[in-house]
Amino acid sequence: MASNPYFSLAVLFVAALGFGLAPLGLAKLWGMVFSPPKPNAIKNSIYECGLESKGDAWMQFRSAYYLYAIIFLIFDVEAVFLLPFAVAFTGLGVAACVSMLVFVLLLIEGLAWAWAKGVLTWA
């Protein structure tokens, strides 16, 4: 088992997980032992500049905002794809660069069309 090639990867993974979760566990422990949670109605109420909030925020809003959010989402996802490419960028050939360029340009062309259609302006 010790000589399994993936063993070092498993140790690193467990260490990373521990490094991530340990502070949360410590905080939970601290909360239970030392500072108990004391929720109450006023503390949990919605903060609205010191007043009681009337009405609720779930309401119909303009469709332009929805389109704006969707376009942002597309570029957010595109950035996720760019990440591994950027990491391994030095080791790749010209073909990989061109294909990634095509991918990026396709999306920018979509953005240009949306901009031309006036989706981004809602004044």
Partner: peptide
């Protein structure tokens, strides 16, 4: 006419209101 009106209070405690003004 596209959506409802959102009633908000830029209330007494608001970074832009130079103190207590709503």
């Amino acid at each position: 006419g596209e959506g409802e009106l959102l009633e908000i209070a830029m209330g007494p405690h608001h970074p832009s209101t130079h103190g207590g003004f709503r």
